[in-house]
Amino acid sequence: MITVVVADDQELVRSGFALILDSQPDIQVVAEVGNGREAVEAVRRHAPEVVLLDIRMPEMDGIAAAEAICRDFSAKVIMLTTFDQDDYIYDALQAGASGFLLKDVRRDDLVHAVRVAAGGEALLAPAVTRRLIDDMVKRNARPGPPPPSLTVLTERERETLTLLGRGLSNAEIAAELVVSEHTVKTHVSNVLTKLGLRDRVQAVITAYESGLLLPGNRP
């Protein structure tokens, strides 16, 4: 059973999402909350596998809540957003979010996203990845911590990171490298472990920040 916390200050949004998710035989919504502080407390109390977080909430916004949850708990965070909130993409992913959903998401896509996140995959559609890269280009002069060194990676692991950066799935990476999906999973795990990355989303960011991929290499 995949346990979920839904956090949104709009009651109709969170109750609608909760209703859809609770109707699934393998998903249970354990809490519905209306702000970021309540979201962090709900995660502490219920230890869910997935958290749906609105970006803009009172008391503590979604970015701050995502950072606290990803730092202290193992829950996967999916940010709820609208097209006019693109500026938040980079900050949310840096905070540890596993991806994004638009608030007008279709029922089937919502359910799929929760299952994908619970399984440890990233929710980075090509359009979102492009906006992320564009945002990184705009911010490239902003001081920040240097990206992890790639010298610890083998040549095949660097190839895997490059393909992760392009947004490819395990099956697509396997086809590119002409190896099995099991082998790809091992390479991905090695990349994340060696570079100290939380998930595939951070691998995408690292691929670009390290210069392994350039902004022109769009998915």
Rank of each mutant, 00 (worst) to 15 (best):
M1Y: 04
I2R: 04
T3S: 15
D9M: 06
E11Y: 05
G16N: 06
A18T: 00
L19G: 13
I20G: 02
S23T: 12
I27N: 02
V29N: 08
V30I: 10
G34A: 06
G36W: 08
R37N: 13
R37M: 14
E38K: 14
A39L: 07
E41C: 10
V43Q: 09
R44K: 10
H46K: 10
V51L: 10
V51S: 07
D54G: 08
P58K: 04
P58S: 05
E59D: 15
M60E: 12
A64Q: 14
E67K: 14
I78L: 15
M79G: 02
M79C: 02
T81H: 03
T82M: 13
Q85S: 13
I89Q: 00
Y90L: 12
Y90P: 03
L93F: 07
L93K: 01
Q94T: 14
A95R: 05
G96L: 08
S98I: 07
L101V: 01
K103M: 03
D108R: 11
H112D: 14
V116I: 13
A117P: 11
A118D: 11
G119V: 06
E121S: 14
L124A: 03
L124H: 01
P126S: 12
P126N: 10
V128D: 00
T129W: 00
R130I: 11
L132N: 07
L132K: 02
L132P: 04
I133S: 10
M136C: 13
K138S: 14
R139A: 11
R142K: 06
P147W: 14
P148E: 07
L150H: 11
L150Y: 11
L153D: 01
R156P: 04
R156W: 08
E157N: 07
E157S: 05
E159L: 14
E159Q: 15
E159D: 15
L161V: 14
L164Y: 03
G165W: 06
G167S: 12
G167L: 10
N170W: 00
A171D: 13
E172N: 12
E172T: 09
I173T: 06
A174K: 04
E176H: 13
E176G: 07
V178A: 04
V178P: 00
V179C: 03
V179P: 00
V179D: 01
E181G: 04
K185I: 01
K185Y: 04
S189V: 00
N190D: 10
L195W: 03
G196N: 00
L197H: 02
V201N: 05
Q202V: 02
A203V: 00
A203P: 00
V204C: 03
A207V: 08
S210H: 10
L212M: 09
L212K: 07
L212Y: 03
N217C: 13
R218L: 15
